[in-house]
Design a binder for these strands. Structure first.
Lengths: 86, 86
DNA sequence: CTAAAATGTCAAGTTAACATGACATTTACT
DNA sequence: AGTAAATGTCATGTTAACTTGACATTTTAG
């Protein structure tokens, strides 16, 4: 998803590795999230937001993002029962 | 993690299943997240927040929550190199 | 009380978010 | 140019956040 990590990180003069250390995550995880390779877990999102003293929504731009994982793709044809089937 | 889903959901007169449908998730997922069985993905957290017209942090109470998953547990003994080792 | 709706919970399977390690490429400095 | 730091990226493995399906328990309403 779209995010402002790189912008804010450089503003603070942090490397990806340093940011990773600050939030207790790997350098590669920071890199991948920053590069929009995958979605952050909610805790990592929160930790990053805290480093930059922001709300999660100010860093991760949900509205402008394309949702790849759930909530689309499947769960499209097999609706109509919805009930647990008892 | 601690959250105010039940409170807000009932305030709106929604069932777990209805909330699940609104955010495109299963009833069981809503139940488990509400009961703090597991952490929501960031998209589910966002969708729930939007249903209740709140910020994520107003619904999921990070500060009061115990972090079970990452950022503790491992990554404690094997520090000191930090660099990729080349 | 009784039936239905809501909720709780378990099993099994899938998927993606991580971790670690390794190597390649780019950036920055002297 | 040369070198070190920073970044990009790939492979492999683990784990937890989901899914569907099924059944048990609790709550609600007539």
């Amino acid at each position: 998803m779209k995010n402002r990590i790189k912008e804010l990180r450089e503003q603070k003069g942090l490397t990806q590795e340093q940011l990773g250390t600050l939030i207790g995550a790997s350098r590669q995880a920071v890199n991948a999230i920053e590069a929009e390779k995958f979605e952050p877990s909610i805790w990592i999102a929160y930790d990053i937001a805290k480093v930059f003293d922001c709300a999660i929504e100010e860093i991760f731009l949900f509205e402008e993002s394309i949702r790849k994982s759930r909530a689309e793709c499947s769960r499209r044809e097999h609706n109509g029962h919805s009930r647990d089937s008892r």
